[in-house]
Amino acid sequence: MSEKLYLYPLWLRLWHGLNALFFLTLLVTGISMQYSDIDFPLVRFDLAVTGHNIAGIGITLSYFMFITGNLFTSNGRQYRINIRSLFSDLLAQGRYYLFGIFSKQIPPFPVTLKSKFNPLQRVSYIGAMYVLFPIVAITGWALLFPETIARQAFGYSGTLLTALLHIVMGFFMSIFMIVHVYMCTVGKTPLSNFKSMINGYHEAH
């Protein structure tokens, strides 16, 4: 009975695999630098710096893959919001996640080829990919070339302000990722969405 939709083309899966790999590396090395401690080393500091730099460059490159893919294939259309009905759509989807899901109600926005995301997914993906990510990436690259940063701003070191923005936005990205991974367990079976991201085919409920 389960129908299969080809939702995740190869380039997208490739991007996503790289992205997840790089992001986890960034997360672990980032935390280990920020909370570096003589007594509790997580990753050796210089290795963490190098790892973080490499993964940062990698994730930026793979981001261009994501942008290019979405510019030149139909996948980009999945990221268009219908502003007029946005609020009520979000409410409907929110209500489903908070209540309907427990009584196996039918989701208000079933997955189709034309619209594979529900409104909450769409908004959070846009937020993560087109707002948070650029900020983290730009501040990250600035920190890679600290000479480009203003020495002083508002009485603080410019590097400090840049780093704060980088860390806070990175933190929000991590929160996004945790929620994202959890929400991906909401599928036909808890693992089916992860399989989809590997073979490209979505299994409907």
Partner: peptide, 8 residues
């Protein structure tokens, strides 16, 4: 802070 940002 006024002078530098030292990671960690």
């Amino acid at each position: 802070l006024n002078e530098a940002y030292v990671i960690g």
